[in-house]
Simulated scan of single mutants.
Amino acid sequence: MTPGELRIENVSVAVAGRALVHDACLEVAPGEVVALAGPNGAGKSTLLRTLYRARRPTSGRVLLDGEDVWRMGGRRLARRLAAVMQEPPGEFELTVYEVVAMGRSPYKRAFQGDDADDREIIMDALEALGVTALAQAPFDRLSGGEKQRVLIARALAQRAGTVVLDEPTNHLDLRHQLDALRLVRDLGVTAVVALHDLNLAAAFCDRICVMDAGRIVADGPPAEVLAPALLAEVYQVDAEVTIHPRTGLPQINVVPEPRRRTSL
């Protein structure tokens, strides 16, 4: 897997006359892991969809190693960019193994079966996400967290050098959240990860890009971006940012408003 260089150049997206993303610019260096953060409705998922060609930009370009992804053949792009989407897939009668094996499709001709190399890659992906024991289980009967891990395993089996993940920690418990992000970190791929949990973003990402109302309003290392003033402006919360004594990473603690007593 050779990590790619990803560039978002002046991308805007409008749907039914409503602007969802405004003139977004972002550069992700080969091997860099960038978190895309922001409140609900900020435009994170919409921007990510332009990267894996689920939503065509109204204007601007998305470049992978200098090539416009919207001009690349689908099979060729799939060998270089994998996506873990937020929307759950439709119900289909496939086993977990068969879902993960779909990650090998870009390397095959129509109706070509798995060879020994494919099977090894698929089993490695299942093991990496801790779902080997579920290999023959029906995918549509899994819990939300199990499905999420299987879909990450499918992207891993794709062996692409660039990965886009839209809220990959959704439905995952604490341990599997850490495992999934640590795996992305250790793969050495180029990754753009939409995350709500800013503490996880600070722990596993080189940079945090913050969106608000469809615009990129901050971009930089976690220690620079995660400032109380920005959190107050974008998230409208009172938060303290401290340095964790063991990790040396910024840690956000939201200060809750005091409870008001109600008289009966």
Rank of each mutant, 00 (worst) to 15 (best):
L231H: 02
V69G: 03
I8P: 03
G144A: 04
R259K: 08
R261N: 07
V189H: 11
T46M: 11
D117W: 08
G43R: 04
A110W: 15
L231K: 02
A35S: 13
A155R: 02
N40R: 09
P39W: 06
R71N: 15
R261I: 10
M72C: 11
A82I: 08
T46R: 06
D219Q: 09
A194Q: 10
L151F: 00
G73K: 14
R185L: 08
F139K: 00
Q86G: 10
L77V: 10
R71K: 14
L172W: 08
P3R: 07
H244R: 06
Q177S: 10
L151G: 01
G60L: 01
D186E: 15
G38S: 07
Y107P: 12
A157R: 01
S12W: 06
E27Y: 08
D186T: 08
P245H: 12
R109M: 12
I121Y: 00
Y52M: 04
L129I: 01
L200P: 14
N199R: 10
D179G: 06
V193L: 12
R215C: 09
E233A: 14
Q236A: 13
A83I: 03
T162L: 06
N199L: 10
A78D: 08
D179E: 15
V69W: 14
V184H: 04
G103A: 07
T58F: 05
V100Y: 00
R7V: 13
D23T: 01
G214K: 15
R53K: 08
G43I: 03
P250E: 14
L47V: 02
A83Y: 04
N170Q: 10
V193W: 09
S143H: 02
V62N: 01
A194E: 08
L142I: 03
R61Y: 05
T242P: 00
L26K: 09
V192A: 11
A202N: 12
R61N: 06
D212P: 06
L200K: 14
G60T: 05
R104E: 09
R71G: 15
P106R: 12
R76F: 13
G43W: 02
L81D: 03
A128H: 04
L6H: 08
W70K: 00
P222D: 09
Q148D: 03
T50E: 03
S105W: 13
N253W: 02
D212Q: 15
I121F: 01
V217I: 15
T247Y: 12
V237G: 01
A227H: 11
G130P: 01
R260S: 11
E87F: 00
V62K: 03
P228Y: 04
G17H: 13
V11G: 03
R182D: 14
A54N: 11
V189M: 10
R159I: 07
A223G: 13
I208K: 07
